[in-house]
């Protein structure tokens, strides 16, 4: 079966981002960009399913500026077969991304779409669920285990109280949580090979999708700083402070 994997270009998780001085946006000038960690887990899961013989083709799709090609190439180096870039320099909000993905799903007809549960920049945790709504596909969010069966997939989900398993009819959307797998590193020969794999480019307009933003960011600011308190000498002093100063025990 065919699997579609969505990958997002985000500020690398090791970079500590800061708001711009005028508070208009986050300062992303000259910072390292990478594939969103949850998306990398999605690619890895698709590749493992291919290695097991469950999946025959993996299509990696990304959206945004031209540079998103880099993240598609990363996915290709990890084992995806071909790439699709939906190119735009406009801001893409999750609903717009879900609509573009829907258009691609209609064209490619994958049996499963695997994507990260959220991106580490916007932290929205929405796109997979919205793609499910728009296509009518079932959704297995926050997956820690994915087992494909005949015509269906069993997804074990990380929920607040523990784990929940659901069975979804295919085609379905799966969004990955951290413990689904540990992504591999791309080998140098695979990175070289990835450069020759096909990568098609289209635009939201080609897909017939209106990407006009629905929300506006009025300002960004750093969170309230917490002041460091005092060091206590020993356990006795700690207990005394908690009882008499903080009055929390």
């Amino acid at each position: 079966m065919k699997v579609l994997v969505a990958v997002k270009r985000v500020v690398d998780y090791n970079v500590k981002v800061r708001p711009k001085a005028d508070g208009s946006d986050v300062d992303t000038a000259n910072v390292k960009m990478s594939i969103n960690p949850f998306c990398e887990i999605a690619v890895e899961e698709a590749v493992r399913l291919k290695e097991k013989g469950v999946v025959s083709e993996i299509v990696a799709v990304s959206m945004g500026p031209k540079q998103c090609q880099e993240q598609i190439r990363t996915a290709l180096a990890l084992g995806a077969d071909r790439g699709i870039l939906v190119e735009t320099d406009e801001e893409l909000q999750p609903l717009a991304v879900a609509k573009c993905l829907k258009a691609i799903v209609e064209k490619e007809e994958p049996q499963m779409v695997i994507m990260g549960k959220q991106s580490i920049d916007g932290d929205n945790n929405q796109t997979g669920q919205m793609l499910g709504a728009l296509t009518g596909m079932a959704q297995g969010t926050f997956a820690s285990e994915v087992v494909v069966e005949d015509g269906s997939v069993k997804v074990t989900r990380e929920i607040d109280g523990g784990l929940q398993t659901v069975e979804l009819k295919l085609p379905a959307v799966v969004t990955t949580d951290l413990r689904l797998n540990e992504p591999r590193y791309a080998s140098l020969p695979n990175i070289m090979k990835a450069k020759k794999k096909p990568l098609d480019t289209s635009t939201p307009a080609d897909l017939g999708v209106d990407i006009a933003p629905r929300t506006k960011t009025l300002k960004v600011e750093p969170p309230a700083e917490r002041q460091a308190g005092v060091k206590v000498a020993d356990v006795a002093e700690l207990v005394e402070k908690l009882k008499n100063e903080a009055k929390v025990i």
Partner: peptide
Amino acid sequence: PIYAGNVIATVQ
């Protein structure tokens, strides 16, 4: 919060 709580966004 966005960026893991490193930034707070005001959104309309």
